[in-house]
Nucleic acid binder design. Sequence first.
RNA 1: GAGGAGGCGCAGGCGGUUGCGAAUUGCCAAGGAACCCCCGUUAAAAGGAAACCUGAAGCAGUUUGAGGAAAGUCCGGGCUUCCGAAAGGCCAAACUUGCUGGGUAACGCCCAGUGCGAGCGAUCGUGAGGAUAGUGCCACAGAAACAUACCGCCGAUGGAGCUAGGCUGCUAUUCAUGUAGCGGCUGUGGCUAUCAGGUAAGGGUGCAAGGGUGCGGUAAGAGCGCACCAGCAGCGUCGAGAGGCGCUGGCUCGGUAAACCCCGGUUGGAAGCAAGGUUGAAGGAGCGAUCGGUUGGUCUUUUUCCGGCUCCGAGUAGAGGAGGAGAAAUCCUGCUUCUGCGAAAUCCGCUAGAGGUGUCUGGUGACAGGCAUCCCAGAUAGAUAACUGCCUUUUGGGUGGCUCUGCCAUUCAGAUAACAGAACCCGGCUUAUGUCCGCCUCUUCCCGC
RNA 2: GCUCCAGUAGCUCAGAUGGAUAGAGCAAUUGCCUUCUAAGCAAUCGGUCACAGGUUCGAGUCCUGUCUGGGGCG
Length: 142
Amino acid sequence: MALPKHYRLRKRQDFSAIYRSGLRQSTVHLTLRALRQISPQSLAPLSRSSTSHQSAERFTEESSLRPTQLGISISQKVSKRAVVRNRIKRRLRAAFRALLPQILSGWQIVIVVKPGATQCDYEQFLQELKQLLIKAEVMHGG
RNA sequence: GAGGAGGCGCAGGCGGUUGCGAAUUGCCAAGGAACCCCCGUUAAAAGGAAACCUGAAGCAGUUUGAGGAAAGUCCGGGCUUCCGAAAGGCCAAACUUGCUGGGUAACGCCCAGUGCGAGCGAUCGUGAGGAUAGUGCCACAGAAACAUACCGCCGAUGGAGCUAGGCUGCUAUUCAUGUAGCGGCUGUGGCUAUCAGGUAAGGGUGCAAGGGUGCGGUAAGAGCGCACCAGCAGCGUCGAGAGGCGCUGGCUCGGUAAACCCCGGUUGGAAGCAAGGUUGAAGGAGCGAUCGGUUGGUCUUUUUCCGGCUCCGAGUAGAGGAGGAGAAAUCCUGCUUCUGCGAAAUCCGCUAGAGGUGUCUGGUGACAGGCAUCCCAGAUAGAUAACUGCCUUUUGGGUGGCUCUGCCAUUCAGAUAACAGAACCCGGCUUAUGUCCGCCUCUUCCCGC
RNA sequence: GCUCCAGUAGCUCAGAUGGAUAGAGCAAUUGCCUUCUAAGCAAUCGGUCACAGGUUCGAGUCCUGUCUGGGGCG
């Protein structure tokens, strides 16, 4: 990872939570799944979903604590060769890192790579990522 | 110079901007803490504390960070747990290993050799035990595919009197020999029939038909005899052995075991680092200080002793709290114990190894041994990078020079790194792969001297 | 990490113990039928049996090694 560890999305729970209730945007080669993060204290009783307005109040105070976390999902259907998949991941991370200063904190993001992205270069990924993040209002429009 | 065979090496280099993991050092929040201060047995509160220890996150420095295949998972190990057994033998089972000798921790791997096959050769390939232990199969064709005889050849016994002959009678003709016609006898050759005849030379069929070629031999034939070749057996000799060479012998046995099988060989089995352990969220079960009884039951190895559990009796009042009449239920807490990664949690396992490099010695070699030296990835939604400049190499064009079918210099344009990503660790095998990549040895042909 | 299965015509599948020229349905092409089309009928076309090597007289089938695709378990 060309990202520091606390910018990475690491737990299986986080991924499944994002897939379950996150918003969705997509371009030709990428799909964005994003979830606005709730504070770490109320993360545990998330499934009971009874303490919604309490956590919403806390959110405004504590959203600045946790930075935005990124996870990348790329299937074997995109390419059977691990080298190709890893290269795409690294390029996406590099693009994300370049956009990091403009990104709001407190989000959890998963980027799903679609088949056909094998031919893309760094510039294309940067453009598509920027488009997605602006559409999802994770990033300042500039 | 052209073509070919074998082997080895490398896995482009130097930067720029922005970054990541690990180790380590320092700084640092915070905690612990000897101690200081305070107090003076009616006490030890509050406060301080850069001796020292721990040290999250962060910052800074230093070091370091994918492969020859990290891949496929086709073999062999190490390591770990469980089951079984505990040493050896026999049987069974499994493996599916199978020329010989060696190497190795081990191997289905490697090295050296033998036989066979391919190539002019360098070299290459080889799943290379047994077909008289038994069973099965060998389509079609063919008489017959494992034990038979279709045609043919030969023999024996017959038949007809057709045919070629032999002997002979009559008639015609001729001077005569003879010739022609019609008969008779014979059974040599042919024809034909038969033989539970002989034969395996020849024909035909087929991948394959009972060793091959030649001479003799025989009624015809045949290893029936001989010579040479191939194969088999025995002996001698060389070799550690597979085998090589030589001599002798009786002459002969289809193929298929990558069909079943037989023989030999090997082997505890199963799972795999998501092994397995530590901490432990969560869940289940439970919680009594002490003494006595062996007539009981059961477990630890049969017996004895000792001991554990259970049982019976005494006794105390039964973890703490709430609750209640309470030693009840129920709830919370604590403790004991069991389960416990789908809580894909933490840490360990986790990288010093059948290790790398250099050198010497032994060995034809695989390899082994000695000495010196080095420490060289440990991630876990998975680091080792993203973008980019120049060089290198090379192709084409232009210009210039020279010793001019070329070479050198310069310039412009293009191409320029393939295959591929550690996931517990090693040894092999296999597969993928190159910027016109580089190097060495050998071989064949051509040209020149 | 472990493990199983498949690969045969454009598609979906047969092909049991090796035997001659590898079949079926659909599709395609042509013809018939019909005013025309569909349906129907008839014929035709189409195969490196995934690849390479081997055993055998002979291999889709047996053996060995690869490649590709798909599934299962922890």
